[in-house]
């Protein structure tokens, strides 16, 4: 028989989708990555050094 689930790779995939807790881990990773990215971006923006005159007006003169 050529049933895909007999192959170890597909067995691994099945384990991946059908194991309680793996889903939580994946979702956790996703959320964790997103939150980290967002936090780092905010730090990156806030940490910008003042270069010359500071100004509110827009647009900035490049």
């Amino acid at each position: 028989m050529n049933f895909p689930l007999e192959q170890p790779l597909f067995q691994f995939f099945y384990w991946l989708v059908n194991t309680a807790g793996v889903g939580s881990a994946v979702v956790g990773l996703l959320i964790g990555a997103a939150v980290t990215t967002f936090a780092l971006t905010l730090r990156w923006i806030a940490s910008a050094k003042d270069m010359g005159q500071e100004s509110y007006p827009y647009p900035p003169k490049h």
Binding site: N18, A20, G23, S24, A25, L30, A34
Partner: peptide, 21 residues
């Protein structure tokens, strides 16, 4: 329980992931 025993095969889990993100 969805955070402890979440299963990737369940569409509801995709929704939880997508909604949170």
């Amino acid at each position: 329980n969805t955070l402890l025993y979440g299963r990737l095969q369940a569409p509801l889990m995709w929704d939880i992931a997508s909604l949170t993100l």
